[in-house]
Design a protein around this nucleic acid. Structure first.
Lengths: 188, 188
DNA sequence: CTGCATTTAGATAGATCGGTCTATACAGGA
DNA sequence: TCCTGTATAGACCGATCTATCTAAATGCAG
């Protein structure tokens, strides 16, 4: 079953937006790389902004699905750690050159409220799932733990791009372990 | 002494690039906001890319100067903490909407090797200074400490934009304290 | 006052931008 | 077979992009 033209456009646009930036990637380059014609894009998406929104939504759904799968497979009490590890796996496979949501927030901050809000919501969604994992692991008595882990994951996005995957993920694990050890040592 | 036209251009371009992005900010908007004419810009900078490079260099120099000043004023053994605090001050005053170097890396990754390298060098420069501070505080037996602190600072860049300055800086201090406490508890 | 460098105003260039339009080709289902 | 939805090819639009050019005005130093 070959991918639909719409899926080809989404995948191509995601790659180009991620590699070259949103404003620097023109419609012509997207349709040429996707092997379709200009009107096909506008047949599926009413505007470039709508295409950007669809790309971000689809990517975030895949991201969340991989996190949820890892958490579901993790033993009780290990949900938080599984989430952090799954985040690392995602960086390794799909996001070695910075977070696309962070890039979108930067490029659309004063240019499209909708896109900026969408990207910001993706980030706070990760935070919310971290909070849920911390609660399921019985660590939510440690106020702000999820927020601190979130900050570490955000830092690992940049660290991967600057220091390489191996180093960045090892450091992420180390800091995560330290934070979790502190949280577990405190009796509720 | 009024600012020179060149300085006006640098300051205006820095603000617009930071708020609206690099590719989304046109030459016309920069010169209009700076109150000069287009040829004045091209009289001082050979191209937009050169203007971007000059903006990033000037901003990084100011950033490093404020870090160095804080470190110089800090008591012995407190250099690392002073550097982290100075970074927080910088975020609070000038960088509440994400790191301009990270934005530049995202927008110029496949568009200008020079700009991308410049922004990446600014980031690794911060890491190098963290390593120097850790060494001066006698904590360099704790392998990777500087790298982990660096990752936390990178995360705080994003956290400030998403969770607000107060929360992000408090979390940064908390994680930093935890990492430093662990390092200090290990005898060299 | 003169001379030089800077700044101004504005036209201009060629390329690219996002987006629209028409006419044609082609597929699969009724 | 015909009909409908989708894709194609390509012209076209106005706007904007970076960059260059000329000619006049301005300001400051010698």
């Amino acid at each position: 079953m070959p991918a639909s033209k719409r899926d080809q456009l989404l995948a191509t646009a995601e790659r180009l937006f991620y590699e070259q930036g949103f404003h620097a990637t023109g419609i012509d380059r997207i349709v040429a790389a996707a092997g379709v014609v200009r009107m096909t894009l506008y047949n599926h998406f009413p505007s470039k902004e709508a295409l950007v929104a669809a790309v971000l939504k689809a990517r975030h759904e895949r991201f969340i699905a991989s996190l949820e799968a890892a958490m579901a497979a993790a033993a009780p009490g290990q949900k938080t750690l599984a989430l952090v590890e799954a985040h690392g796996h995602w960086l390794e496979r799909y996001s070695q050159h910075g977070c696309i949501m962070a890039k979108a927030m930067g490029e659309f901050a004063e240019h499209s409220t909708e896109i900026h809000a969408l990207a910001a919501a993706a980030k706070t969604d990760l935070l919310a799932r971290l909070e849920a994992a911390v609660a399921r692991d019985g660590l939510d008595h440690h106020a702000g733990l999820a927020r601190r882990l979130f900050m570490v994951l955000e830092g690992s996005n940049t660290a991967v791009a600057l220091l390489g995957v191996q180093t960045a993920l090892a450091d992420t694990r180390a800091v995560t372990d330290a934070l979790l050890a502190t949280a577990r040592s405190e009796t509720p």
